[in-house]
Nucleic acid binder design. Structure first.
Lengths: 230, 230, 230, 230
DNA sequence: AATGAATGAGCTTTCATTCAT
DNA sequence: GATGAATGAAAGCTCATTCAT
């Protein structure tokens, strides 16, 4: 057996796997760096150092830095929706349970954690001047509006395009968005229970026919916020 | 009698005025550039070109770019609060009118316009990795919470630190924050009337004792969204 | 009497005095800065800050920075020779006493102190690439050679241009120069007594007819060097 | 058997060699520039132009200009000692021959030439305000003192720490240092023979038991100074 | 396929100098 | 005469990208 031949051209399967691994490593290093240092602070050198891969790799896999950022944004959005939809689909079939599942997923550790929220806001920050990033933020919004809209339409028993359904959807998503902003600004002091309670309190008021929301207000009422830190 | 005490530094008024004008021009150029090109895209060269001032000016007035950005953030926050508080103080004295005034100010053209919303989000995007920017976002949040909290406490006739008041404040601000996010993502399609209607609908539901919110839902119901742009 | 006229045009004597004071202050600030920060580290801003005068003053009095540096070099050299010659002229009339006086002056606190030695070496460092500075270093050397040469000629009872006189002068100045270098490199550990002793030891050997040098070797023998520092 | 362990990084020899060559070229260009234009006149642009390498290279190999200067100073000092010690070790074994060899090396073309003397003085000029440069000048001095001290101790048959040995060493180095200063100020008119003669004359006087120094005075007596230049 | 030395455009900042006040 | 705000060339440095190895 000739060793040198093997080292120079590894089995094609291995090679493809290694390629995919490098790609993933670069995307993760990019997201980590954005979370830590922001978009402006994420240089190719930083990504390369974090990933422990070679400099040329980025241009080999993604052509340029911009494209890598885009793929990183796509990866973030994909993870988000994968988690959200899996969570929602596991909920029992009533629309109110689906809505609740969506809200709780959005406020759960898996989604609302310092790293990913930092990245979402970092991409948004550059989205205005960087249309491609905007696309991912926008897509998230559109898909969210569809998913929530469907649940709200069922809840109100009305057409998804009726003003009532649209307003309910609009408000629910706005509340959620507001909670993200709150978390972004004070992740240390943020109280997930309180955030849920506030949303359910508003939903209980606008959807008085569904007592489940009022019950959830009570259930989330006892939560005490815990201060982290030194 | 006016003493000519200024003989040693003649006519300092003109020079001082010109200095202040240059300072302001640099801050405005910086904010303009951030709105257009984001934080990462705002170089000293870009600011200098926009302001039609000289390169050295930035370091003369602000020492470095970072400090200029900070002063620009401060200027943005100052303008925001100045407008908001002026608007609220002009409202008739009832707490519901003050709350309404605050909401309408936050959703009005003066505050919710493409330029300033782009800048707020741009600063936020870098806030995580750049603590000094965070301070401005955070301060806005804290002050907003106080102002809204006072109005909500009066509305509910309860202590500002009671859970009900806190939740109402929390929800109202979250809704508003959600509307900003909505505007940020689709300023073309954004419908100020719809945004107001949604917020008032939720407030009407949680504050049934105040019919004014329900009336405002109806009043904002007829708004049609208008597509701008090519 | 019209006051404003006086404030705008003070008595001509006062003005000239103030002008000379400013000039001197700028030169001293320049020399201080060169001692502290070197030639490369001495910017106009630094000089202006040190002198507490206005920025424009430098160009008013010296046209440009280069010229100010030249005047500072001249001022340094003038002070040096003024002190040296006064010291030598105070010595009793024999040539050996004059030579000794010159050597002791060159190694005394007034001349061999951290500030002035730093400045001499700083100017020398730039002298090669900056001919005007070279001129001052060179002039010092030429004048020193004349003064020492005259004393050595008398000592040897030979013509100043004879090889013996030239070699003695050459060697004496070289020894002195070597001591300066020694002081420059280790001003903390430098022992003036030891430096004198070494020079006198060499002179005693080459000038056996003058027992005064041998006596001075003994007189400077007991000096202990003292280490400064933490 | 030679294993092809380098398959993953093929032919590293060529790349490494090229890297080392670039490093060396930058150091040489820096030294050339310092000789011509001084420390203050040696900008990155100048070095880059001289070396015909790219701008980024300096920061690739040395991180920053300061570090490059330091490496250049180290390179200068290394060359100096390499030459000096090789020269001294080639001399016949007697201490007087070693001392003579050291002196002649220090005054020889290889060491005492316009380029290197300009660089030594340029570094010294900034050494006071730039401690790292001082280190190299200081190290040279310390090593020189050791080498000369050892030879002088043997000559006098005394302990290296005795006052006589220390004074002889001190004086010999001071004379040499003085000759460097002389050369620095007038390299055109400098006469190596005369410099040697002066030093040997002083050594002959303080070391009467070694007739070799007196012989060298005579041997260097006939030298005529030759004017170079236009 | 993978590497990392090399490139040079463009970055922030410093600077000597100018000139309206 | 004196001031210091203003200028813009040039400084040191960082960066995404290229390409020989």
């Amino acid at each position: 057996m000739e060793l040198s031949a093997r080292t120079q051209t590894p089995a094609p399967g291995k090679r493809a796997a290694s390629k995919a691994r490098s790609r993933k490593a670069l995307i993760e290093a990019t997201l980590d760096s954005i979370a830590e240092a922001g978009i402006a602070g994420t240089s190719v050198s930083r990504i390369v150092a974090k990933s422990a891969l070679s400099r040329g790799m980025i241009h080999l896999h993604f052509d340029n830095k911009e494209h890598l950022f885009l793929e990183a944004a796509r990866s973030l959005a994909d993870s988000y929706f994968e988690h959200l939809l899996r969570f929602a689909s596991e909920a029992s079939g009533t629309p109110e349970q689906r809505l609740i599942a969506l809200i709780e997923a959005d406020l759960g550790e898996e989604i609302l954690n310092p790293r990913s929220i930092a990245i979402w806001y970092a991409f948004r920050g550059e989205a205005r001047s960087h249309n491609a990033f905007m696309a991912y933020s926008d897509t998230r919004d559109r898909r969210l509006r569809q998913i929530y809209g469907a649940a709200c339409a069922e809840l109100l028993g009305a057409d998804a395009r009726s003003p009532e359904v649209r307003d309910l959807t609009h408000g629910a998503i706005a509340l959620l968005e507001g909670m993200w902003a709150d978390y972004f600004l004070h992740s240390d002091a943020f109280d997930r229970g309180a955030a849920r309670r506030v949303i359910f309190r508003f939903l209980a008021a606008v959807l008085p026919r569904y007592p489940v929301f009022a019950e959830l207000v009570a259930a989330n009422g006892r939560a005490r916020r815990v201060r982290r830190g030194p």
